[in-house]
C-alpha cells in the first residue's frame, strides 16, 4: 500500500514536470524573443510562486474539484519560475560575439534559436528543470488535501493515527526521491556544462 503511494507520488511529479518543461521553456523563449513581454511574464510567474502552495491548490480546487488534475495544475503553477527564468537568462546570456557571428553568417532568428541559442542555454535550462523537479516533489505532498494522493496521504494518515512508522516512511521516501532525482540530474548537468566548456554557475 505505501509503496503504491510512492509510485503515485512519483508519476504525479513526472507528469507535472512534463508540462512544466514545455510551458516553462516556451514562456522563456517568448520572453527572450520579445523583450517587451519579458517583464510581465517573469513578474507573473514570480508572483505565482509567492502564493503559498496550499492556497494555490485550494483556489484551483474551487474551480476544478478535488482530483489528481488539480494537483498537477498546482504543481505546474508553483514550479514554473525556475525554468522560465533560467531559459530567459540562458538565452540572454549567450555571448554577444557568438550572436553577432550567428547573424553575420546569415542565420535567421529561428535558425539561430535552434542551432545556437537554445543549445548554449540548455545547461542553464536543465538546472531550472532540476530545481523545478525538486520543488515539485515537495509541493505534491499537499496533493492529499485536494484528493490527489501521493506520499502526502501516507504522512497525513500517519499523523491522524499517530503512527510514527508511517510518518517516518513517508518522510524518508520523500527525501530519498528528492535526493535521488537531484543527484542524478546534477550529474547530467555537470556533463552538460563541461561539454560546451562553460563554468558551472555558483549556486
Amino acid at each position: 500500500m505505501p509503496w503504491d503511494r510512492v509510485w503515485e507520488h512519483f508519476t504525479l511529479v513526472m507528469t507535472a514536470l512534463g508540462f512544466i518543461i514545455v510551458i516553462g521553456v516556451v514562456l522563456g523563449v517568448v520572453s527572450y524573443l520579445y523583450p517587451k513581454l519579458s517583464k510581465p511574464i517573469l513578474t507573473i510567474v514570480d508572483v505565482m510562486q509567492t502564493i503559498p502552495s496550499l492556497a494555490t491548490l485550494g483556489i484551483i480546487m474551487v474551480f476544478m474539484g478535488g482530483n489528481r488534475r488539480t494537483v498537477i495544475i498546482g504543481i505546474i503553477l508553483y514550479s514554473l519560475l525556475p525554468i522560465v527564468r533560467n531559459t530567459n537568462s540562458g538565452l540572454n546570456g549567450v555571448s554577444p560575439a557568438v550572436k553577432e557571428a550567428a547573424r553575420g553568417m546569415g542565420m535567421t532568428r529561428l535558425y539561430q534559436l535552434f542551432h545556437v541559442d537554445l543549445p548554449l542555454a540548455f545547461p542553464l535550462i536543465f538546472t531550472g528543470i532540476r530545481i523545478a523537479a525538486v520543488t515539485s516533489i515537495s509541493v505534491a505532498v499537499f496533493g492529499t488535501f485536494v484528493g490527489g494522493g501521493g506520499l502526502g496521504t501516507v504522512i497525513y494518515q500517519g499523523i491522524r493515527v499517530s503512527s510514527m512508522r508511517q510518518i517516518l516512511f513517508g518522510t524518508a521516501a520523500l527525501m530519498a526521491m528528492a535526493l535521488l532525482i537531484d543527484g542524478i540530474m546534477g550529474l547530467i548537468e555537470k556533463r552538460l556544462y563541461r561539454r560546451i566548456g562553460l563554468q558551472m554557475p555558483q549556486e
Binding site: 555571448s95 560575439a97 557568438v98 553577432e100 557571428a101 545556437v116 543549445p119 548554449l120 562553460l198
Partner: peptide, 11 residues
C-alpha cells in the same frame, strides 16, 4: 564575416 571576438559557436 570575421570579428575580433572570433565568436565561434561553442556548441
Amino acid at each position: 564575416y570575421v570579428i575580433q571576438q572570433i565568436g565561434l559557436f561553442p556548441n
